[in-house]
Design a protein around this nucleic acid. Structure first.
Lengths: 357, 357
DNA sequence: CTGTTAGCGCTTTCAC
DNA sequence: GTGAAAGCGCTAACAG
């Protein structure tokens, strides 16, 4: 048995001959450019369909001459996520270069809707495609729509603006991520009953809010023996997270689970590990091994905590995959190629000690 | 801030001029073809390095004219894995076609070393690249080495032949996968103590053996309250797996965990679910919800079992990713491009109800 | 050993 | 509306 999955070896010229027109006309039809009589369009389209003709991307790419320009619009500040994305784009440098693709990083105040919208508007016309870590706000939505109308391909990255007409979203379903975290905490706590703490950056952040929502959904419906304490807002800050959590642990000796929704992991781990505190309250030498601790993302720190057994699981959204998917999707959009949705979908990874990447 | 990650716009001609040679000579150096004086080689290489020149893949692809031929050599028989790979390749049809890539499926008796080796030898010269679900056996190893020597690019798929000179392995680390399964069973069982059953296809299969090894490693070192029962060999057959497991469940009322290493999932679930049996032994209405059940791969069946709560987790190696990675790696090898190892690495996915893909 | 040259299959002017 | 023709940056003969 030997089944061929991709034949085709026709060229534009073949289609032109079959349709009784010139190369240029086929090209016009292929790209929906104006200036072709409707019935000529049909004749050409028929010929294309009849032969299931696929233009040769390499030839198209070579012929257009100019390089494509993409940009990643990301949060400013010493953001580890941004650094990771940048590092992964760096790894692709040769790949990008061999395809004459230019990718830039643009830092913006992503948390200020007006500023973000202004930055985006200012970019109009400068790039073939933009990957934006967006904020779901009317002015941002409008800016995205303007870019799309101007012909720029736009994908939202990590944080979506579903109400906009962005071409694609590269990121995870945060409600499902929260549900996954909830199921893990509940299942890993096991038979024990007690309280569960949540530390988030802010409930005003859409992704954090969605994760908490999903988490509570699962807790409420499936783990009646666990009661969820009010969310601590650590603002993704180590010091503040530690302080808030330490106080909470002191007040509730029966905390058996902990969900850290955002960053501030260092502080959270410190609070859990604080011997002095723990000796007073539970008599044990540290609660880090007793409390089921689930967080997000695989960083140098969470990797270490997983290996030490302090963290039990990390929900991860593979930043390398996100960076590459954003580039591939922008490229496919720019070329008019179909997107391999299976490939570009970002999965919710459960990372435990033994499957650390 | 706006940092460019991929400049370059030079061409072969620029390098030729800078090195004081012709296009053809640069091309020869670029592809390590013979017939160039050593110091000319150095001059050209210097010019290339100095400008960090990257040849334009599209131009190269277009110029070579002929399409590339790849083949997937896979187990014969109504194998669901093979069907999935084939389906995913089908989804890529347009992508392949637009790049003038031909991909064929070749079915072989993968379990018969001599047959597999003969099939491989017979393919020599017919393809630019081969993705092989291999068997780690001396004759297969020799066949792979012969292919490599003849210039064919070879990647092993799912099952590796590490002793061969294959260019790449696309698949997971099965020991780590087994460890992950062990950690999950142990953690999900929780405080309870009792016995753990293992159902495998055969301990003679390298991947099954490795998974069991990893599983036992974790069990032995980290879950002293759980004792692992001797492996049942279900030969990936539903009936046989059901029968063996049912008998075991009858004999040991204190089984709290189950690891299904290979296929035969239907039978395993049936045995767990068998009311009659369970009433006799444990008095409950079915043990499917009491026994922690971890298996491999996301199929229609395991998906259903996860949703029903019968299975607790599936270890998965994303077949879509494997199919695409194999194609991309073969293509990169054929083109002489670097491989994006991060991208092509197959992760050990933990799939639970809430992060089902 | 090295250089010249004719394409590969498209896109893009520029004519008609 | 439509067509002719000049490349895009390589590869692969074929000359020398």
């Amino acid at each position: 048995m030997a089944e061929t999955l991709a034949p085709t070896a026709l060229t534009l010229k073949d289609i032109a001959r079959e349709a009784g027109v010139s190369l240029a006309t086929v090209d016009r039809v292929l790209h929906n450019r104006p200036g072709v009589r409707p019935d000529t369009v049909r004749r050409v389209k028929d010929a294309i369909a009849r032969n299931s003709f696929q233009p040769h991307v390499a030839a198209a790419e070579l012929a257009r001459g100019r390089a494509r320009r993409f940009a990643f619009v990301m949060p400013s500040g010493p953001n580890p996520f941004m650094q990771q994305i940048e590092a992964y784009l760096g790894e692709m440098a040769a790949w990008l270069s061999a395809r004459r693709l230019n990718v830039e990083m643009i830092a913006t105040d992503v948390f200020e809707p007006a500023a973000l919208a202004a930055s985006l508007e200012a970019l109009s016309g400068d790039y073939d495609g933009l990957a934006v870590v967006a904020l779901d706000h009317p002015s941002v939505r409008a800016a995205i729509n303007d870019l799309v109308d101007a012909g720029t391909k736009v994908v939202t990255l990590v944080s979506d603006v579903p109400s906009s007409r962005r071409h694609h979203y590269v990121g995870i379903d945060n409600i499902a991520a929260g549900r996954t975290a909830g199921a893990l905490v509940g299942r890993l706590v096991g038979q024990r009953s007690g309280k569960v703490a949540i530390v988030a950056g802010s409930q005003g952040l859409r992704d954090h809010a969605e994760r908490i929502f999903g988490f509570n959904q699962v807790m409420g419906s499936e783990f009646p023996d666990l009661s969820v304490l009010p969310v601590l807002e650590g603002r993704d800050d180590d010091g503040r997270s530690e302080q808030l959590l330490a106080r909470l642990l002191g007040k509730h000796p029966d905390i058996v689970g902990l969900y850290n929704v955002g960053a501030g992991t260092q502080g959270v781990a410190k609070a859990l590990n604080d011997k002095a505190l723990n000796e007073k309250t539970s008599g044990a030498a540290g609660r880090d091994k007793q409390v089921v601790f689930v967080g997000h993302d695989v960083t140098a720190l969470t990797r270490r905590l997983l290996l030490q057994g302090v963290m039990d699981a990390a929900i991860s959204q593979n930043p390398g995959h996100e960076a590459r998917a954003a580039v591939r999707v922008l490229l496919a959009l720019a070329r008019g190629e179909p997107i391999l949705s299976e490939q570009e979908k970002i999965r919710i990874d459960i990372v435990m000690r033994d499957n650390l990447p």
